[in-house]
Nucleic acid binder design. Structure first.
Lengths: 167, 167
DNA sequence: CACAATTCAATTGCACACAACTAAATGGCC
DNA sequence: GGCCATTTAGTTGTGTGCAATTGAATTGTG
């Protein structure tokens, strides 16, 4: 099938393979998102909002900055998202007294209470994946390692230089 | 650590596990997206636009509908995206003569020529993942199976009913 | 032929995601 | 104390992603 063809043909082959892998990741990500959307609809949360609530259910109160580090999201994404959560009555935002640059995000009673209804979400998602906990855990570890590798590769500008064939 | 605790505690544990898995997927997806963004910048393409171009480099011409089936995207996403590609001079859109509901998308010469410069993209991405082709293929297959399972689970409204504990 | 159901692309509205920028507050240094 | 670099949220602009709707074209049925 691929008997070490010419370099150009090999690149073309890679372009097809790449086609497959980026399709796969893109599709899986959106399929997951879709399942979460359906499941979270009755809680009135979007998927990213659910992620924020997950952190808050563990931490109870923390500045936007810390939230962003947990979720790898910047203020451009979090500011409007948190405003919507505040408008929904699930969180409060208030300037820190100690450091007025910082905004502390904390759960309202309503927000804390929502956790009870959210307890059923993970099981539903796990069922939808059709995987057992061991497989889920394995996939999670792979994805974490992949993310770490991608981050370190992506943030390094030198990586672009040391790649021959750019010109 | 988890010696078959009370049901409520078990759900709480799942909520933490779920925390991990959805973080992982979310982060991996965006990390990938980020690497593609950097790599595609010099081609003047976004990641979804690159996906569209990949299809067109294989198919050369096809209606928006088919494109959407390949990519699992609807016209709400594709219409503005294709307009941008057209504005960039990479594709042409024209009403089909046979069926005037349909819009045929085809590459311009410039769009076809861009393929040459895109040939180096897959290798860069593969390098950034730090995985060998076998591992990439394995991951791809897992993701494809997962997507298939998620889609069939998500589109079935009965799945919500047969889940006890919703009330 | 007429009419209803279907198909297809486009549009609208909402919610991320992220780059780039702004503005306020803080901390370090002289 | 005064000044400057840094930190922190927020804002703006662009580009998806998707649900819901619109409108034109086509197909099926009587």
């Amino acid at each position: 099938m691929t008997p070490t063809p010419t370099p150009a043909a090999a690149s073309a082959e890679w372009l097809r393979l790449d086609n497959q892998i980026c399709f796969s990741l893109h599709a899986a990500s959106r399929a997951f998102n879709s399942v979460y959307r359906v499941t979270l609809k009755e809680l009135g949360l979007t998927y990213p909002q659910y992620l924020v609530m997950l952190v808050l259910w563990e931490e109870d109160e923390l500045p936007v900055k810390k939230l962003g580090e947990h979720l790898r999201l910047d203020s451009g994404t979090l500011s409007p998202l948190l405003k919507r959560l505040e408008a929904a009555g699930l969180v409060r935002r208030e300037r820190s007294a100690r450091d007025e640059r910082s905004v502390e995000v904390r759960l309202t009673e309503e927000g804390a209470a929502l956790r009870e209804r959210a307890l059923q979400v993970p099981r539903r998602i796990a069922e939808a994946t059709g995987l057992d906990p061991r497989e889920i855990n394995d996939l999670r570890e792979r994805l974490d390692r992949l993310t770490e590798t991608l981050d370190s590769a992506g943030l390094d500008p030198a990586a672009l230089e040391e790649t021959p064939g750019c010109r």
